[in-house]
Computed example of a mutant assay.
Amino acid sequence: MTAEAIVELRALVGSLGEKWQANWWGSDFFSLTAGAFLSPIFTRSVFLAQYNGVTAAAAKVHDEVIGVGRWYSPFPLTH
Rank of each mutant, 00 (worst) to 15 (best):
M1G: 14
M1I: 11
M1W: 09
T2L: 00
A3M: 08
E4T: 13
E4I: 10
A5M: 04
E8T: 14
A11K: 03
A11G: 03
L12R: 07
V13L: 15
V13Q: 04
G14N: 05
S15H: 13
L16N: 05
L16G: 08
L16F: 00
L16Q: 06
G17N: 09
G17R: 02
G17V: 03
G17P: 02
E18F: 02
K19Y: 06
K19R: 15
Q21Y: 05
Q21V: 13
A22E: 11
A22S: 06
N23G: 10
N23F: 04
W24P: 00
W25K: 07
W25F: 10
W25L: 00
G26P: 06
S27Y: 00
S27F: 03
D28V: 13
F29Q: 01
F29T: 07
F30L: 13
S31T: 15
T33H: 04
A34T: 15
A36M: 14
F37L: 08
L38H: 08
L38R: 08
L38S: 08
S39L: 06
S39Y: 07
P40S: 11
F42E: 09
F42K: 14
F42Q: 10
V46M: 05
F47I: 07
F47M: 12
F47R: 12
L48G: 07
A49R: 02
Y51N: 01
N52V: 10
N52F: 07
G53Q: 07
G53W: 03
V54R: 04
V54M: 11
V54K: 00
V54T: 15
T55F: 00
T55I: 12
T55N: 11
T55C: 10
A58K: 04
A58R: 04
A59N: 08
A59S: 14
V61P: 05
H62K: 00
H62G: 06
H62N: 05
D63S: 15
E64M: 00
E64I: 09
I66S: 01
I66T: 03
G67P: 12
V68A: 00
R70L: 04
R70G: 02
W71T: 06
Y72S: 10
S73M: 09
P74Y: 00
F75I: 01
F75W: 04
P76N: 11
P76I: 08
P76Y: 02
L77H: 08
L77E: 08
